[in-house]
């Protein structure tokens, strides 16, 4: 089965491990992620001002691509891309006037009808593949580790695009349980990592990372699993800065859920992109 896939910028650079692991896992489950032709930047952050339509053109244009190429749904891996594309789509379908304007801004394109579904890989795994089916394909026992699932913000908020309950989500836990992995009840799983403040207010991100990773470790986690390249970067790479400030701080690997799936489903570890992880998840790689 083929599904159109929107990568976004970071999946092609720092987060290649997210992309390659997702491709491997989906292949194993009988799905092919078909990269959208001529995709462009989603804008990364959804524009929130009432008078700002122009920034909604970029995400909508990607949905036009899906239509052009004969699709009616598109899956994303990056939580930021998911949020931006989905919010733009929801907005487009809620405001007739804005819809006409956006279509007229894109005069070289076919008109968009609002009929492309924006999905995140997690919901595809739950609703199309089925966690039960994934469970049946598990070949490596991972019952020796405890995982802290980390959702971040953009899969859960705002409510119009949430893939799960904003306060007590469970989709990632359900997936991890299907893989035979134990999870911790992680109160910070839906707390912000500090996001793009990593560029100009790094102190904030260091503080967030210290708290989030620290609590995960306190609660007995061996690894944190995430689905956003920016969360992954902040929580993992910024641990070095945390360590400089708090020498007693103990590091914890932060990986993509697809990498963990790959290990459980028996994809050879060298094909899961762990070389791009700064803190190696040794508990997984030495199986």
């Amino acid at each position: 089965m083929k599904i159109f896939y929107y990568p976004g910028c970071t999946l092609k650079t720092q987060a290649r491990n997210f992309e390659c692991s997702a491709m491997e896992v989906m292949k194993l489950l009988g799905y092919e992620l078909v990269e959208l032709n001529r995709w462009n930047c989603c804008g990364t952050v959804y524009s929130l001002a009432s008078d700002d339509l122009i920034h909604k053109v970029a995400p909508i244009r990607n949905l036009v691509r899906v239509k052009e190429q004969g699709g009616d749904k598109v899956v994303t891996l990056c939580a930021m891309c998911y949020n931006t594309l989905k919010q733009a789509n929801v907005f487009f379908n809620s405001d007739q006037e804005a819809r006409d304007k956006i279509n007229s801004f894109m005069d070289t394109e076919i008109d968009y009808e609002g009929d492309v579904e924006v999905l995140h890989l997690l919901t595809v795994l739950r609703d199309e593949v089925g966690f039960d089916n994934i469970s049946k394909k598990v070949v490596r026992k991972l019952n020796h580790i405890k995982v802290a699932p980390y959702y971040g913000c953009l899969l859960l908020r705002p409510s119009t695009v949430a893939i799960d309950d904003a306060e007590n989500p469970s989709i990632m836990e359900e997936l991890l349980h299907a893989l035979g992995v134990e999870t911790i009840d992680f109160p910070y799983r839906n707390e912000c990592c500090g996001t793009y403040n990593t560029v100009s207010a790094v102190d904030l991100v260091i503080d967030r990372t210290y708290r989030i990773v620290g609590l995960a470790r306190n609660l007995g986690a061996d690894v944190i699993v995430t689905s956003c390249p920016l969360c992954q970067f902040n929580l993992e790479v910024r641990q070095k800065d945390v360590k400089e400030r708090f020498p007693e701080f103990e590091q914890l690997p932060v990986i993509y859920f697809t990498q963990l799936m790959g290990v459980a489903l028996g994809v050879p570890t060298e094909r899961l992109g762990f070389e791009l992880n700064h803190i190696k998840p040794k508990v997984l790689m030495e199986l």
Partner: peptide, 18 residues
């Protein structure tokens, strides 16, 4: 240092917001 290390999404978002 920052420019080469942070993911693009961080930079684009930073420019968009700031």
């Amino acid at each position: 240092d920052v420019l080469v290390s942070v993911p693009q999404i961080a930079l684009v978002a930073e420019f968009r917001k700031h």
